[in-house]
């Protein structure tokens, strides 16, 4: 069980002269929490995740427990934090199982080195939990976009990180798998103390499954709190520039954006 909290202070990141994340501070995220990152395109969500993952240089502090992540090497970083990018390439002659075992072989995994049999066992277990056992031996170039997303998620989960960063993990999934993935990630976070930060666009799903919601606008935090606090009419109207109405009905958040949702 992981016990460290994640804390971000004064984090800035960008590309050349263009700053995308502006001195962002996120108060401690306790272990086992699922946090959704919400906001319009180009609000800096992906850049934030990549900076936390150590893939992008930034200024400021990202702390996991007592460890300052920005000071760690790429390899030490990879032991603690897993980042799942939006896309998994298509034209690759690897099976789903190989995609997951390959990740385990290539990356330093917390704890001891795993044997071949352990790697296989661990990969299959995750693939099973994600619900794509039937695709284990299928090559990536034969999968649909959603199936590739599930393979990608299996790969990320198999590494058993303390901090899991998911960039739009359910954007290509059907309703069944959207719910299944949210449930699974939530459950693993609770079981292991893993902290999950995920970029989502579906506000209803974010409201239903998150412990906490961070709403971004132009590289700054527009709201931060429990779903019912953070997601409110004023913030949504401000961030998305559309008429928004949020109501609590039978304990569930009902969100109406310009009559769409």
């Amino acid at each position: 069980m992981f016990t460290e909290a994640l804390q971000i202070e004064g984090l800035s990141a960008g590309y050349g002269a263009r700053t995308v994340v502006h001195g962002l501070s996120i108060p401690a995220i306790p272990p086992g929490q699922l946090v959704s990152l919400i906001g319009p395109n180009a609000a800096g969500k992906t850049t934030l995740l990549r900076t936390i993952a150590g893939l992008h240089a930034g200024e400021g502090s990202v702390r996991l427990g007592a460890r300052e992540l920005t000071k760690l090497s790429l390899a030490d970083h990879a032991r603690l934090v897993t980042y799942m990018p939006q896309s998994l390439p298509q034209q690759v002659a690897l099976t789903v199982l190989e995609t997951v075992t390959g990740a385990l072989r290539a990356s330093p995994v917390e704890g001891a080195r795993l044997s071949d049999a352990e790697i296989l066992e661990r990969a299959m277990e995750v693939i099973d939990r994600v619900g794509i056992t039937g695709l284990a031996m299928t090559q990536l170039d034969r999968l649909s976009g959603g199936q590739r997303q599930l393979a990608s998620l299996s790969q990320a989960l198999a590494r058993g990180p303390r901090v899991l960063l998911l960039d739009e993990p359910i954007s290509a999934l059907d309703l069944h798998f959207q719910l299944r993935v949210m449930k699974l990630v939530h459950q693993i976070a609770r079981e292991t103390g893993m902290i999950v930060l995920m970029v989502l666009h579906d506000l209803e799903i974010a409201a239903r499954w998150s412990d906490r919601v961070l709403i971004f606008a132009e590289g700054r935090l527009a709201a931060d709190g429990a779903p019912a606090e953070a997601i409110n009419s004023a913030v949504l109207a401000d961030v998305y520039r559309v008429a928004a109405e949020v109501k609590l009905v039978d304990g569930r958040l009902r969100i109406d954006l310009d009559g769409i949702l």
């Binding site: 990549r50 993952a53 150590g54 893939l55 790429l74 390899a75 030490d76 970083h77 990879a78 032991r79 934090v81 897993t82 980042y83 990018p85 896309s87 998994l88 390439p89 690759v92 690897l94 190989e98 995609t99 390959g102 990740a103 072989r105 290539a106 990356s107 330093p108 790969q155 590494r159």
Partner: peptide
């Protein structure tokens, strides 16, 4: 070999596995 297999899955992904 393992690092190269990982690189086939994308550069960002390979780096997030801790590969330089």
């Amino acid at each position: 070999a393992n690092a190269m297999t990982a690189l086939r899955l994308g550069e960002d992904r390979a780096r997030s596995f801790g590969i330089d």
